[in-house]
């Protein structure tokens, strides 16, 4: 029988933790970008400026929530919810520590992939419903990018799944007790991380919302809390990406001395810092480069990786 109180507590902790961290991440990103550009970043409100997101939230709540008269109203309003819901749903299968997981689903990896493919809708119909040129261009780019990157995201995951012999995320973590999967699955890790950056619209792949060319891409027309939802959704997907990378390739909660939760959070923090560092450093791809890189380089790499891994697993099994 399911222990309801335990489940409810876990849901509360993970939901609250994810949303708080996403809010905090906005400040962390601005602060780190500031430090790497030899300035301070927001450092006024609270110790070190850590309450900046709170001030931003108050501001964004009190702003005018404008729906363009030319927009498709119902779809326009639903869209921001899809981003946050799909991102938060994916957190349901993330095992933070042994038995510290909302739903230890057999199909954890597939569930994550399903949610990330549904998240594409927010971008697509958000850009379409805004009924403006830049938003539409942004959503067209997003579709092409998501379709090509979804494919090898799944493919590069499968190497880890093959090694662990299970789609269950807890099983995958437990299989890495002695050796992290990043060693045998290095190319799988590269492919997954790249695809994850593309899914989260982060810097080398942030074509759908390229500020310099498309204003803000698919969320140009959004304002007030609807824009805030898109923003929080983006940071939730960064959290999700780093959590999934840690689980699939970096041994999840395993580590010496410290308790499992601390190890998990530490590893996640490392990946978040890496993602922000990438944003601070690398320029944006050109769009055709992005697609040809995806299909011609990473896709064959992921396929070869999968083939070799499958061969090795079969050979070891005898």
């Amino acid at each position: 029988m399911i222990d309801w109180s335990h489940t409810a507590l876990t849901i509360g902790v993970i939901l609250g933790g994810a949303l708080t961290l996403a809010g905090l991440l906005i400040w962390v990103e601005r602060r780190l970008l500031g430090i790497w550009q030899e300035r301070y970043g927001p450092n006024r409100l609270g110790p070190g400026g850590c309450l900046q997101s709170l001030a931003d939230m108050i501001k964004i709540f009190t702003k005018e929530d404008w729906i363009p008269p030319f927009a498709d109203k119902a779809v326009f309003v639903i869209t921001p919810a899809i981003v946050v819901i799909t991102a938060l749903m994916s957190f349901a299968v993330i095992p933070i520590a042994p038995s510290f997981v909302v739903s230890d689903l057999n199909m954890g990896v597939m569930f994550f992939l399903a949610m990330s493919s549904l998240a594409a809708y927010s971008v697509i119909i958000g850009g379409w419903a805004s009924n403006s040129k830049f938003a539409f261009l942004g959503s067209l780019r997003a579709i092409a990018q998501l379709l090509s990157y979804e494919v090898f995201m799944g493919l590069s995951l499968m190497g880890a799944v093959l090694l662990a012999g299970s789609f269950n995320l807890s099983d995958i973590v437990n299989a890495q007790q002695h050796q992290w999967f990043v060693v045998p699955q290095f190319f799988g890790f590269l492919g997954f991380f790249m695809a994850g950056l593309a899914e989260a619209h982060r810097t080398p792949f942030d074509m759908p919302e390229a500020e310099a060319e498309l204003v803000a891409g698919y969320h140009s027309e959004y304002s007030g809390m609807k824009f805030g939802m898109f923003f929080v959704g983006e940071y939730l997907s960064i959290l999700l990406l780093s959590a999934m990378t840690v689980i699939l390739f970096f041994g999840g909660w395993h580590g010496p001395w410290l308790p499992p939760v601390v190890w998990f959070v530490l590893k996640m923090a490392g990946f978040i810092v890496l993602i922000i560092l990438i944003r601070a450093t690398w320029p944006r791809f050109r769009f055709d480069q992005l697609l040809s890189f995806g299909w011609k380089v990473v896709m064959p790499l992921a396929l070869i990786n999968l083939l070799v891994t499958g061969g090795v697993v079969l050979w070891k099994a005898g």
Binding site: W36, Q37, E38
Partner: peptide, 19 residues
């Protein structure tokens, strides 16, 4: 070159801001 770029930016962590 991409990795070198990352390292150069990361080294900025230990410089004092000019602000």
């Amino acid at each position: 070159n991409l990795i070198i770029g990352l390292w150069i930016v990361f080294k900025r962590t230990f410089t004092t801001p000019v602000t």
